[in-house]
Computed example of a mutant assay.
Amino acid sequence: MFEYFEKNYAWNLTGITLIEEVGVMSQPAEAFALAAPHQDAAPEVASIAWHDAMVELGARIEGFAEADAAAGNRLTASRKFNRAAMFFIRAERITSHEDPRQMIAYKRALANYRKARENADDGVEFVSIPYENAVIPALLIKAPDIAGEPAPIVIHIQGFDSIKETQWPMFQEYRRRGLSILITDQPGAGEALRVHKLHARWDTEVYVKVIVDWIMARKDIATEAIGLQGISMGGYFAPRAAAFEKRIRAVACWGALFEMPALWARRLEGGDVAGTHPSVANPLKHAFWSFGLDNVEELKEFISHMTLAGVVEELECPLLVTHGENDRQVPLSHAEETIKRATMPDKTLKVFTKSEGGAEHCQIDNRAIAADYVSDWFAKRLRV
């Protein structure tokens, strides 16, 4: 994996995705150079430096996008609005949710992202799925009907710290294979957490059932061929949901997570996770926020439920687990144990190697190679 920063894994993680998302190296490199002197500073100092560098570039590109939009250059404006959105998203990712600058950057990201989609006219529908007293926000991208019937659809759910806006247009590979995709910010993630105050839950089948009900109620997408995929911590969320929501016809873990208690044991005692690297500046604070908890004891109780032991055995649909051989956040053993315990005949473990690319956490070093593999797998199981 390309690692610009010698001393900050979280910055490298978000930095490499930013390069992919904006499609050029020069602008991210300019922001990296501004932030680099502070990479090993105290977290609160480092996060401010990162935030300011990202916002500076985002604001500049936003201005160029507005000028193109005013001149009627809609496609050019779309690309620039999208790049601006990615800089604002990467600014808010490293910034603490307790810092008001995080929400300011996030709202600018949403505004620019929406303008990008509207100017591109690329078939992205912004949808809101009623849930409890709020909504689950999502992006719906429909594939053409097949023989007069709606195409199969894959539901995507986030992990610990991912958000939906970073995943389109990457997920266009699904539509190219005749699959619609619904990219959600489920409770505990993205807009559901930041705007609607919906916190994560370990019994993920509760909100997945609501999402499936919503799909079946829309005649333009209603289909019995429904897939479910989860990325990163979604490697627990997705198979957990599919084990109990039997309308899911195929499930994929884009990065495995077999059990949380063992993975987080040292972190909960004030240390780091053995053999792993934190993906955000302060994982404990992020967990309290995402899960809606106040202290370590509550967190221990919450994650005690987050194991696939006795759960993955209940899965009946086909299962795919992908993992990187050099994943520094979740050991490969989580993928191996998930597959070992699964009892259905159609189960696949794909380990991405350093030689082929995609060897890091959730193939962050080459997300395109994973998008190809996972969408191919779903197409073979849902388009039958």
Results as ranks from 00 to 15, higher is better:
Tyr4Pro: 00
Phe5Ala: 06
Glu6Ala: 11
Lys7Arg: 15
Trp11Glu: 00
Asn12Ser: 08
Thr17Asp: 01
Leu18His: 02
Ile19Ala: 08
Glu20Asp: 14
Glu21Thr: 00
Val22Phe: 06
Val22Ser: 07
Gly23Trp: 07
Val24Gln: 13
Met25Asn: 06
Ala29Arg: 03
Leu34Cys: 00
Ala35Gln: 00
Pro37Leu: 09
Glu44Tyr: 07
Trp50Val: 00
Met54Cys: 10
Met54Gln: 01
Glu56Asn: 10
Glu56Met: 12
Arg60Tyr: 06
Glu66His: 00
Glu66Ile: 09
Asn73Asp: 11
Ala77Glu: 04
Ser78Val: 02
Phe88Gly: 02
Ile89Asn: 00
Ala91Cys: 14
Glu92Phe: 06
Ile94His: 03
Ile94Asp: 01
Glu98Arg: 14
Asp99Val: 07
Gln102Met: 14
Ile104His: 07
Leu110Ile: 11
Arg114Glu: 12
Arg114Lys: 13
Arg117Glu: 15
Gly123Trp: 12
Glu125Cys: 05
Val127Ala: 14
Ser128Asn: 13
Ile129Leu: 14
Tyr131Lys: 06
Val135Arg: 01
Leu139Thr: 01
Ile141Met: 13
Ala143Glu: 04
Ala143Arg: 05
Pro144Leu: 10
Asp145Leu: 15
Ile146Gly: 13
Ala147Cys: 14
Pro152Met: 10
Ile155Met: 08
His156Ser: 11
Gly159Glu: 03
Ser162Ile: 03
Ile163Ala: 01
Thr166Cys: 03
Phe171Val: 06
Gln172Arg: 15
Glu173Leu: 15
Glu173Asp: 13
Tyr174His: 12
Arg177His: 14
Ile181Asp: 10
Gly188Asp: 04
Gly188His: 10
Ala189Gln: 08
Ala189Leu: 04
Glu191Tyr: 03
Leu193Ile: 07
Arg194Asp: 01
Leu198Ser: 04
Thr204Tyr: 00
Glu205Gly: 15
Val206Lys: 10
Val208Trp: 01
Ala222Lys: 10
Thr223Ala: 04
Ala225Gln: 09
Ile226Cys: 02
Gly227Ala: 08
Gln229Trp: 01
Gln229Asn: 13
Met233Gln: 03
Gly235Ile: 05
Phe237Met: 10
Ala243Gly: 06
Phe244Asn: 05
Glu245Pro: 12
Lys246Pro: 06
Arg249Phe: 14
Val251Asn: 08
Cys253Ile: 05
Ala256Glu: 03
Glu259Tyr: 07
Met260Tyr: 06
Ala262Phe: 11
Leu263Glu: 02
Arg266Ile: 08
Gly270Val: 13
Ala274Asn: 08
Gly275Ser: 08
Ser279Arg: 10
Ala281Gln: 05
Ala281Gly: 01
Leu284Trp: 10
Phe288Ser: 04
Trp289Ala: 05
Ser290Ala: 13
Phe291Tyr: 15
Gly292Tyr: 02
Leu293Met: 05
Asp294Glu: 12
Val296Asn: 08
Glu298His: 05
Glu298Tyr: 07
Glu301Ile: 09
Ile303His: 04
Ser304His: 03
Thr307Tyr: 02
Gly310Met: 09
Glu313Lys: 11
Gly324Val: 06
Glu325Asp: 12
Asp327Asn: 04
Ser333Gln: 11
Glu336Asp: 10
Glu337Gln: 15
Thr338Arg: 06
Arg341Gln: 11
Leu349Val: 03
Phe352Ser: 03
Lys354Phe: 06
Ser355Ala: 15
Glu356Leu: 13
Glu360Leu: 02
Gln363Ser: 15
Gln363Pro: 12
Ile364Asn: 00
Ile364Ala: 08
Ala368Phe: 03
Ala370Trp: 01
Ala379Cys: 13
Lys380Phe: 10
Leu382Trp: 07
